[in-house]
């Protein structure tokens, strides 16, 4: 091979997303006739998940395959574009925004000054919600002690009347089991099921109503610039194809896990009405507006996003 990329993921070795990402590495090799080799490394192998941006820029890693919200500490705009809570109802909408709505260009406008180049976006899909108590709408969130990832997700839940708690992922299961928290924003339905979360929290909400993370594939900019154009195109194509493949695979697994959970009889899968989903989106939107003021780039993200949503009939103009 002519080029090798050592890329660190934000997922651990055993995680299904990481297993899929290794398939992406093979796709790259096939698409480039072996001229580009990608080595995928699990989270924390070289540096912590929040430190990959600096490591890629410094050339310690060649790239990262990571949740964009981990860069929010550098610029809150990354947090907003990574997870505009409630904005997307399916992965396809987000992919279209990135490809045709100016998302990709904006990502590079924000990322390149840091020394990284954004190749493309993917996502496992809409996250499911884990809960010990029945949740059938926004009103049920009032007073709910829930674990939510740092950033806007917490703000939105707080605005909806819930009490978000900071907890590391490794403490989620025990905390749910012992009742330290009632609910958790954790992962996709099939992953939650596989990790046994539904054994201790029998009222999952699916499809979720809150998060769909933007997972970015970015590489060191100097290294990207050194690639010939045909390889650049091949890598971009590979990420695009992978995104569709990943979201479809996860969706299929989720559906199977949901059927299994329903058939088991122990777990009640809750689904919110359209009205309640809209209510939640309205609460979320008030938080996007706040988040837009956090930085110059945040405002750009907000403007681009709302324009796209309105133009595509996903949101009413107001």
């Amino acid at each position: 091979q002519e080029f090798t990329f050592r890329i660190q993921s934000s997922d651990p070795a055993g995680n299904t997303n990481f297993v899929l990402q290794k398939e992406w590495a093979e796709m790259v090799s096939e698409k480039t006739d072996g001229r580009v080799a990608v080595e995928m490394l699990p989270v924390e192998t070289i540096v912590a998940h929040s430190e990959t941006m600096d490591a890629v820029a410094a050339g310690i890693l060649d790239g990262h395959f990571t949740d964009t919200s981990y860069a929010s500490g550098k610029d809150p705009a990354f947090g907003l574009i990574a997870n505009p809570v409630g904005a997307w109802s399916s992965p396809d909408q987000m992919f279209d925004f990135m490809e045709n709505g100016g998302g990709k260009e904006l990502m590079n406008e924000m990322l390149e000054p840091y020394g990284l180049h954004f190749i493309g976006a993917t996502t496992p899909g809409l996250e499911a919600f884990v809960s010990k108590v029945p949740l059938d709408g926004v009103d049920d969130l009032k007073g709910l002690k829930l674990r939510a990832p740092e950033g806007m997700v917490q703000n939105v839940f707080a605005a909806a009347g819930a009490s978000p708690v900071n907890l590391p992922g490794s403490e989620v299961f025990t905390s749910l089991d012992k009742g330290v928290i009632d609910a958790a924003d954790y992962n996709t339905f099939s992953t939650n099921a596989a990790q046994g979360l539904h054994d201790v929290a029998k009222h999952p909400v699916y499809p979720g109503f809150h998060s769909m993370p933007l997972i970015e594939v970015s590489v060191n900019k100097a290294k990207w610039d050194s690639l010939p154009d045909d390889l650049k195109t091949a890598m971009e194509d590979s990420v695009r194809e992978f995104a569709t493949y990943q979201s479809e695979t996860v969706l299929k697994r989720d559906m199977e896990a949901v059927e299994e959970a329903k058939a088991g009889g122990e777990i009640t899968v809750h689904d919110w009405s359209d009205e309640d989903r809209a209510k939640f989106r309205a609460i979320a939107r008030s938080q996007w507006e706040k988040a837009a003021q956090a930085s110059e780039n945040s405002q750009k993200v907000y403007d681009l996003l709302t324009t796209y949503l309105v133009e595509n009939g996903l949101m009413a103009e107001d």
């Binding site: 540096v47 430190e51 310690i60």
Partner: peptide
């Protein structure tokens, strides 16, 4: 030398 910041990054984390 470019790999040395890896060490301080790990200390921080």
């Amino acid at each position: 030398p470019m790999a040395v910041p890896l060490i301080t990054s790990r200390i921080f984390s």
